[in-house]
Design a protein around this nucleic acid. Sequence first.
DNA 1: CGGACCCTTGATTCAGATCAACGAATGTGG
DNA 2: CCACATTCGTTGATCTGAATCAAGGGTCCG
Lengths: 232, 232
Amino acid sequence: MTLACARCPVRDRAACAALSTAERDDLARAGRTRRLSRGETLFAAGAPDPACATLISGALKVTQTRADGSERILALIHPAGFVGELFQPFTHYDVVALGPAELCVFSGSQFEYALARFPALTAALLRRTQEDLYASRALLSLAGNGSAAARIAGAIMSLARAASDSPCHPARALDLVLTRGELATMLGLTIETVSRTIGRFERDRLIRRTGRRGIELLDPARLSGLAEAITA
Amino acid sequence: MTLACARCPVRDRAACAALSTAERDDLARAGRTRRLSRGETLFAAGAPDPACATLISGALKVTQTRADGSERILALIHPAGFVGELFQPFTHYDVVALGPAELCVFSGSQFEYALARFPALTAALLRRTQEDLYASRALLSLAGNGSAAARIAGAIMSLARAASDSPCHPARALDLVLTRGELATMLGLTIETVSRTIGRFERDRLIRRTGRRGIELLDPARLSGLAEAITA
DNA sequence: CGGACCCTTGATTCAGATCAACGAATGTGG
DNA sequence: CCACATTCGTTGATCTGAATCAAGGGTCCG
């Protein structure tokens, strides 16, 4: 059945927040909630009749798989984010869960109907898509230039910002949702370089690793400095 | 004064195509046309009260300038494209003309008012923003991995597709709107590498240079093959 | 004519890729 | 509960593609 919007943790940040309670309940009847665990595919590239979804909790990656099987991460999706390729005859990218994730899923046609009915939803989705565009350009800027250290520092800071509830200050500690390999494909590096660089960060007291995936930021300022550096 | 929409070459491809003739004339009264020549800045990063524009002819680059003055090209805008950061308190990026360009410019507030009045315009802009997002991810994929040859081959093919009137087949010849340096900052390479690689392409009979900026594709198939190659 | 860009080409260096091996954690089935 | 496989991460040695450093030529424009 549909998710109880009233208890949805992202109800006032997701695109549907633009709707009135009645409209939202109406939309909710067209959607269904879905739970994914790490590695499960939500949408597969090439699938016809695209669907779309709002992420309620967890994290997703948007990837492109190349002829030789190597994958490239093009975007990360955080809670309240929207995924789905509307207006397209088929899907371009794979969307895969990075960990346990909870979503509110709609078929493409259902959602397009809702967009036609609720102009405020279209406006909200436009805003969100523009944010995705900024995020994509930020990643372009991050992955395109700079040393390995700058890229990884930037990625860590970006993940720390995403992990924080306060919008401007980065979280002091975070769980890396990405494996070394995923971080590598996102930044255009190799697994070994990522591993070595994170090791160096720890030796330099920039971060501390806690457990398997935990990262604690010991010196966020110096880390962002590294991320800015053009050639470091 | 406002552009005569009736004679606008992009009138049925730009976002405003979603409007009726009367609505479009109404919108046109809020905008004004502007001409830029190579190197002129349309919007500067950091400017308050953002404006927006539809590109009628020519080409624009969206760039980020770093602390040390080096610039990074984050996107190219082709005719019928839309630029402008709505819903943002200030501008993030510079938008600069790559050659003589003609635009239809609106203030942010005027355009937001039009969006509120014409839901079809919002929907059209959503579509266009999603296309920009795909373009951004395509560039991410291009600039992030692969050898210099793969990146440059991909960029040439992409520009050839943009230069073509038919949407699927690339143009057989094109004028590079970008200098070597601009191509380099877009792809995360250096000027010298771009120059050498283009030289090698010509020696290998993949392309032929015609005049200062002209490129003729002698073997588009092999060139796209190069662009696909993971390690070439 | 002089200056400012652009582009090209060559020599050298270096950051990160590649190749290789191993250890730790997780999961599976007997 | 333990052998085993698999995935993930680390570390070391070596190699290489592109960056960097350097120099010179072409073209446009005031």
